[in-house]
Design a protein around this nucleic acid. Structure first.
Lengths: 260, 260
DNA sequence: TCTTTCGGTTCAATATGTGAACCTTAGCTT
DNA sequence: AAGCTAAGGTTCACATATTGAACCGAAAGA
């Protein structure tokens, strides 16, 4: 792997750590030499991607990605467009709703609207959603070109619970149903006791850019409720897609603007 | 410079381009070889930091920073805490308000609340604010340790307008006044016809993490108005700082959360 | 006290990155 | 339609940046 790849993987690892970590800790997590890890961290720090606490000497995610993310959002306002729909969906269903985005070949959670109920599903911002074991993943993959599906199913598929589908044939059938239905359903795919539905956000004729999903405790997920949630997610996804890719692309047109 | 540094500089350059750019274009902007540029872009794309439009083959900022930024915000909720205060300040003064963050040794704009008036100052998200030529920069620098001030003033200082202060001695005096006053004032520092005030956001006893600034057309900036805006910015900055660094650091404590 | 682990550094060995030259395609000029 | 230019992308001998075992001093445990 290239040096850049290693450094970005390190950054990714840091972002996935529960909290700030020391040099040796990070080196272990990345299976890199301590000296190498240090050089990477210094370099990443120079550019603001990580910060080092001057007291504890531990490293944490820096502020540079915030600037990049804001620029990305002004050009492609996925979060700001989708968040209100997610909130509406959370209010409507009373369940946790999360948005995911496809980047670096993975689907990662970029926003969560928590359910107001005491008994609810918790989803972390930043968590990776496996294609085969989450409603988001299935709802995303079902609308991808065949070669992407093949690629996703050719890797070894981890069984997170007894219910996780890991047979490519079974998954292909599920994906077919999802495509016909317009939304995906996943029972206990990643964690037992959780049922989720999801629908893809996409421009017509292109692979999806992400998905919107509702996750509910299985005890509240009767067949009819699941169908209602699924249709609601599908509607929300379609409306988000229209706002992002429809004709009124005013927000996507950065006219001449100057600093003061 | 290390390979990582070059790659991150390339990423920074892309983020600063007005719109999507081709390979040769990017190579020129970064003063890198085309082959090298390509390898960097491929590597950055693998990790989601850039995207290539499959049709035009042009490159643009990818979605990966959004995930990192969201994680950063859950741990250090600068944007979500500061934005409401910025909006309040924009409503109160009727002028454009912007938030900046210190990362990679520079101050960059991470949020803007536009003035509602027709005649207003425009600030771009992502733009870099020079320390010596903006209210944000001066308001930030004034509260930094002496060695940071020395470092900032030792580099050659560009004169953006006839009014830009570029003499270290004059700037040191301005910084002293700013420190005493609690907020900075900058007349026509970066662009003629614009007057700005700013105050630093900071933990007691630490260097600032950023600044909040108000930018108004000079025609609306009489002495008294400027003072009012300055005090308002200072108050907002203090309240943001208290929320971020005060005792109630509940939001900064990411308890055990699991994906569903 | 002794031992381990921490953050951080050094330098010879070498894996890695580099870029001039190349190819192909697309668009423009003559 | 030939001829030109510039685009995106690739190749490979060469050069340089990266690597990691061994090292240091400090601090935390035993």
């Amino acid at each position: 792997m290239s040096t850049i790849g290693k450094a970005l993987t390190l950054l990714d690892t840091i972002s996935r750590l529960e909290k700030e970590a020391g040099l040796s800790d990070i080196a272990r997590h990345c299976a890199l030499d301590k000296a190498t890890t240090r050089r990477f961290l210094v370099e990443l720090e120079k550019h603001g991607f990580v910060e080092q606490d001057p007291e504890t000497r531990r490293y944490r995610l820096g502020g540079a990605p915030v600037r990049l993310a804001r620029i990305r959002e002004t050009r492609f306002p996925y979060l700001s467009v989708a968040t209100p729909f997610a909130r509406e969906l959370a209010n409507l269903t009373g369940e946790t709703v999360h948005l995911s985005e496809h980047a670096a070949g993975r689907l990662s959670t970029i926003h969560v609207e928590d359910s107001q109920r005491a008994h609810r599903v918790i989803v972390d911002v930043g968590s990776i959603l496996p294609f085969h074991a989450t409603a988001s993943g299935l709802g995303f993959l079902a609308f991808c070109p065949q070669k992407d599906i093949d690629a996703a199913l050719s890797a070894p598929l981890q069984a997170f619970t007894d219910h996780t589908l890991t047979e490519p044939a079974a998954l292909r059938q599920t994906l077919g149903e999802t495509l016909r239905r317009g939304y995906s359903i996943c029972h206990h795919g990643l964690e037992t006791g959780v049922v989720s539905v999801a629908a893809p956000i996409r421009a017509p004729g292109s692979p999806p850019v992400g998905a919107i999903a509702i996750a509910a405790p299985a005890t509240r997920a009767e067949k009819e409720t699941v169908e209602q949630m699924g249709r609601a997610a599908m509607t929300a996804a379609r409306r988000i897609s229209e706002r992002l890719f429809g004709l009124e692309q005013v927000a996507a047109d950065p006219l001449a603007r100057r600093a003061g």
